[in-house]
Design a protein around this nucleic acid. Structure first.
Lengths: 353, 353
DNA sequence: TTAAACAACTAACACGTGTTAATTCACTTT
DNA sequence: AAAGTGAATTAACACGTGTTAGTTGTTTAA
């Protein structure tokens, strides 16, 4: 079924069929109807490749997930390899949200996994092969920034989610970021409001921007409220569950431990829970815990974990809006957007008198 | 950068460039090298649309996720809409596995969500538009079968994962299925081996094939071991967490309750855990629990849930193999494959003397 | 009545590639 | 030296679409 076939059936030229499909104005309703009817009746769908070839958009967005498989993680934490496929991060639900939002905007989605910085050419190739009109990249680390700018410099339209580069240095790269700073200060102020004064932290990977910013915000907010930051209340983690376990053990070593702990992501909170329970302490009676990300598991932890929620649909929507605007106007304005967060209160934090 | 440009640069005809790219044999090494060098140097990637247009494959597989949003579910179970995006099922990790395996086979993946049976035309349109060479459909219910055969009848290559139709009735539709029957009997035999005699079950949605088969296998295995099936040891669920909670409450109503319960999926096991704890009982001391699916959360439940593991990478691999074989041979053999399962033993089942 | 304007439609080109049949050219055979 | 062989290359067509410029045929204006 071509447009040619349809043309023959209806008794018009192929051009007319094309003009009907593309909503040209100078075409009388009677003709339009006849053509549309035949299209429907004979189940005709225009060949996407042919359309793309004559310069139309491919109506496809790329979603590239950078997933560095870290095989060096302590073995007892990971049960089988399947979980390694971005199981720990919030990538997985983000993919769902992104596809959902893209489809709503009438766009198809090409998803691809990138296993190392050396594989970033995959993105460029998808652009050059004209498979996609724009791309979102998620999970990039600082090392990837150079290659990303390189691609952007070729006028390919790309948005980085959670770019691991300070906004002021992002240059021409568009990005959508979580309000890490505000989220942490909100979380802390919530704890302070509950009456906590001795507050600890388990940091994330400090070589990553999100880890660094969350830690910075923690320190600033604490000092803004004139609360001390005790070194023995700090546990250094790297966003993995096991590091959360170890970091919490370290915090609980001394006689005096904090009444509340901010954990830089939910995955580490799982480990922290384990350490707390092993020490014979109860959450939230003995120690309150608040996480970050509001990941899928947090509601099923016992007690359910209070956490800073990052709205993945909103991030997805935001990046898609950025992409589509760029695609339609055919120009890239280097915009950095920040998505706000909110605290989901569950039962892991208690009020102190 | 076209093949034309490359041809001009190297000083050969466009045909020669094309033949180099497509590995034609009758081309001397010297020429081949020159061309390849230019291709690399000038970052040339063949236009995928143009290739597709002349009859080549699009090197793209479609992944269609049927996700009926059930808004009628009791409200208190679901915290926010985000979780509804196939958060409860094993779709999410399957997507990751599928992309991974496809990329390994040098195929791109177009992912799309289908929200109701009425939207199944999306699949057909992707085929007609020549966007994809083959497709996997997951999450289909019995109602979708008719439309699926309709698509298959048009010689589009499609594999259904977990097709909700008995193998003998699958007709021309290729499918990859979990060995539900074997998995349940393995689970039961494991419990029996541990010494359990009073074993209960929380069923899944019995209008779905997987729910039905798991229940059937449970009954058969029980009777094969000459164990009675007490009606008050059966809780009827529908694969949702809340139904698991209610079903377990029902089982625990009477004075005498089973020493072990097989729960037809992990999501319901979460609810079952809640009911057990509310009743003041301990797992596995008072009651052993075994689940099905080995979903991401099961390892983080307390105690970690013993569950029947379904290897998603294997299912993905299996379906992709089926697809690629059909695509390459350009013929569809109606094959039904079954993927085996294994029990992941954790701490939710105890030995009885 | 004729020219101009307009509505409705179409012929023809372009997009970038793969492939078939044809062409060139060097080399071997008679 | 002529004819034949084979290797290396290429010209030309096809794929299905969008769009521009052009062509009808009809209505309006002078």
């Amino acid at each position: 079924m071509n447009s040619k076939d349809i043309a023959k059936i209806v008794g018009v030229s192929r051009s007319t069929v094309s003009r009907v499909i593309n909503n040209y104005p100078d075409i009388p309703p009677a003709t339009r109807e006849k053509v549309l009817k035949a299209i429907k009746e004979y189940n005709y769908y225009p060949n996407a490749s042919a359309r793309r070839l004559v310069g139309m958009k491919s109506s496809t967005l790329g979603l590239f997930i950078i997933d560095i498989r870290d095989n060096e993680e302590p073995h007892h934490v990971i049960e089988n390899n399947e979980d390694l496929l971005y199981g720990n991060s919030f990538f997985s639900p983000f993919i769902n949200a992104f596809i959902d939002q893209s489809n709503k905007a009438q766009y198809h989605v090409l998803v691809s996994t990138v296993y190392s910085s050396g594989e970033l050419w995959k993105i460029q190739s998808a652009f050059c092969e004209k498979r996609i009109d724009g791309a979102v990249i998620i999970g990039s680390s600082n090392d990837d920034y150079k290659k990303i700018t390189e691609i952007v410099d070729k006028d390919f339209i790309m948005v980085a989610v959670d770019l691991d580069v300070e906004e002021e240095n992002a240059g021409k790269v568009m990005s959508v970021n979580v309000n890490n700073y505000g989220g942490v200060s909100d979380a802390l102020e919530y704890l302070i409001e509950l009456g906590h004064r001795d507050i600890g932290i388990i940091t994330g990977d400090l070589s990553k921007l999100s880890g660094k910013v969350r830690f910075d915000s923690f320190k600033h907010t604490l000092s803004r409220h004139c609360l001390p930051l005790r070194e023995d209340f700090i546990g250094y983690g790297d966003f993995t569950e096991y590091s959360g376990y170890e970091a919490m053990k370290k915090i609980l070593i001394s006689e005096k431990y904090p009444t509340a702990v901010f954990v830089s992501n939910d995955t580490m909170a799982i480990g922290a829970y384990r350490a707390i329970k092993e020490r014979g302490l109860k959450i939230p009676e003995d120690i309150s815990v608040i996480g970050f990300d509001n990941s899928y598991i947090s509601q099923y932890m016992s007690p359910p974990l209070t956490s800073v929620n990052v709205s993945l649909p909103e991030i997805a929507k935001c990046s898609i809006d950025l992409l589509l605007e760029s695609i339609n106007n055919n120009e890239i304005k280097p915009i950095q957007k920040t998505v706000d967060v909110e605290i989901i209160k569950r039962n892991s934090c208690r009020k102190i008198e």
